[in-house]
Design a protein around this nucleic acid. Structure first.
Length: 526
RNA sequence: GCCAGAGUAGCUCAGGGGUAGAGCAGAGGACUCAUAAGCCUUUGGUCGCAGGUUCAAUUCCUGCCUCUGGCACCA
């Protein structure tokens, strides 16, 4: 079986409801997944939830639920959210899944047997009320701890540690030898700078089950559960293992799995892309590669780090109330408008700034007046002048269109989603200029110009058809609507359709209908 | 505090030793197929501040100011 393009999102921690940051990461990942599929690759797109830990245990307790029941309820919301975003994920992992737990335990068993762990004592200040250790940073200027922590006592706790330290130089060498491993480049420099200027400390990988019961028990010491690293990060390999990826079956020979899914033998690992936020870069660029090396697995091809959103130039925060509810935006403006704004507004990497005015401006200028109006005027002219029948093929805009197609292809393969949208819209401008220069509405008044009018109309409809194919990974519903209006039955989900001349003479289109109705028109009384 | 990066048109940003660029916003115009859309033209800048190197600096160097990111909690 040939290896699929395997991409993942971060798995989100289930305390609370999904917000713009979650939606953003999932949408850009989905666009990448759809792009690769359109370009002919098999794709496995994974997203999911991180469910263990103190906060969830506490929140469940407060609601009088078991942690599992609490997570089950929230997981439903998050799956619904994924559907609302039209994510094309193949699976949805939850860290409380038995299939995930068994992989985590197999990993822990293997690394323990091979001497990657040791026990050690940690002495620190412990807040019983918050059930957490405090650090020097938690002290107030006078040296005391904030009363919210209650009684703070010095406590000694024994835990398991993973030997990170030994692999520091290897990691530096690996990152330097693989320039693509961390993108964008400034994030790579950040990691290298950190690794060269600091000595790694070994990683504490457990919590005593006595104070954190909602976790995965260590197979070799039931007094402990594994802490976040060997739980959440492992999701990236636990799902491939569940589908019987031979690389994982070999690396984890003691793993017992569900035979029905395992028999599929999907070839997924190594991941081609981990899409993450900048806040979890260290875990993915430092801990995870070393964990994989210890397990005996290849590293992912690339870690793609995106930025955060601000609103009106300020940090998004619930307390100040400047929040964006993605579902409200989707209900108000349509899913495709949301997907368009977040992919078009910024490149993957820098922080973005959400403004309602900017959103409305892009909607009107680019979606309604841009792609929507081009399709509308092209189909309207074909209807008026040729009774919706496509004339014989003509190639006047072919060269420009094919140049755009080639550029977009390269940009999609480089995950340059913003650039691809910009390229695609330049073709819209070209087509609008073409209409202006050739003035088909004038030619229509002169029967002697019938052939020239045919030529122009063919070029316009064909450009619209190609635009639908190019835009499908970003705006799947819109692309399908364009095809439907042109009267094409097959889906626009295949990049190979973006070849000039695909529209046959004599084809009959449907009637035009606005793809993105102008909002000012909508809201004004008739 | 330490380590990076950035300050260029109203906004978002590109560029780079020799007449400052794009998109959007603003202004004007010709048209009418279209969602009053589209097209053409066009106004805006001491290129953060102060020095230095150079025939020539927005670009290179130094200092300063401001902002952002990282310095192991958090999409």
């Amino acid at each position: 079986m040939t290896k699929s393009f395997y991409l993942t999102t971060a798995i989100d921690y289930v305390n609370g409801q999904p917000h713009l940051g979650h939606a953003y990461e999932k949408v850009i990942s989905d666009v990448i997944a759809r792009s690769r599929r359109s370009l002919g690759q098999e794709v496995f797109f994974l997203t999911g939830l991180d469910e263990h830990g103190q906060k969830v245990q506490q929140a469940a307790h407060n609601e009088g639920k078991t942690p599992q029941a609490y997570c089950d309820a929230l997981a439903l919301d998050w799956r619904t959210f994924a559907r609302e975003l039209q994510l094309s994920n193949q699976d949805f992992v939850r860290t409380s899944d038995p299939r995930h737990k068994s992989v985590v335990q197999a990993v822990l068993t293997k690394l323990n047997n091979e001497g990657h762990f040791y026990r050690s004592k940690y002495k620190g200040f412990y807040s019983t009320r918050q059930e957490t250790f405090l650090t020097e940073k938690d002290r107030r200027p006078d040296g005391s701890f904030d009363p919210i922590y209650g009684d703070v006592t010095e406590l000694v706790e024994e835990n398991y540690y993973f030997k990170l330290k030994d692999h520091q130089q290897w990691l530096i060498d690996t990152i330097e030898a693989n320039p693509e491993f961390i993108a964008p480049i400034n994030r790579r420099n950040e990691v290298l700078g950190f690794l060269k200027n600091n000595e790694l400390e070994d990683l504490c990988i457990t919590r005593p089950a006595a104070r954190l019961s909602w976790g995965i028990p260590l197979p070799f010491d039931p007094e402990y559960v594994t802490y976040v690293w060997f739980d959440a990060l492992v999701n990236y390999i636990s799902i491939p293992a569940a589908y019987g990826d031979p690389k994982l079956i070999t690396a984890l020979p003691d793993l017992k799995l569900d035979a029905s899914t395992q028999s599929q033998g999907l070839a997924l690992w190594p991941a081609d892309l981990h899409v993450i936020g900048k806040d979890i870069l260290k875990f993915h660029a430092v801990y995870w590669p070393i964990m994989l090396k210890a397990i005996g697995l290849a590293l992912p091809k690339q870690i793609l780090v995106h930025g955060w959103w601000q609103k009106d130039g300020e940090k998004i925060s619930k307390s100040t109330g400047n929040i964006i509810d993605p579902l409200a935006v989707i209900n108000n403006w349509s899913l495709d408008a949301f997907r368009y704004y977040v992919t078009r507004e910024l490149a993957i990497g820098p922080d973005g700034n959400w403004t309602d005015a900017g959103f409305a401006a892009r909607y009107t200028a680019e979606l309604a007046n841009g792609i929507g109006n081009l399709l509308n005027r092209s189909l309207a002219m074909l209807r008026s002048y040729r009774q919706k029948v496509v004339p014989p093929r003509h190639d006047e805009l072919s060269h420009g269109a094919m140049t755009t197609v080639a550029t977009v292809r390269t940009q999609l393969l480089n995950q340059d989603l913003q650039g691809a949208l910009q390229s695609l819209f330049s073709l819209i401008t070209t087509a609008n200029q073409f209409i202006d220069q050739t003035a088909p509405f004038k030619l229509a008044k002169d029967p002697a110009q019938a052939q020239r009018l045919d030529e122009i109309l063919y070029n316009l409809i064909e450009v619209c058809r190609i635009l639908a194919v190019l835009i499908w990974p970003f705006l799947p519903t819109t692309a399908e609507k364009i095809f439907a209006q042109i009267g094409i039955v097959n889906p626009p989900a295949d990049f190979n359709l973006a070849v000039w001349g695909g529209l046959p003479a004599g084809h009959v289109t449907n009637d035009p209908a606005p793809l993105f109705p102008r909002r000012d028109t909508l809201s004004s009384p008739a």
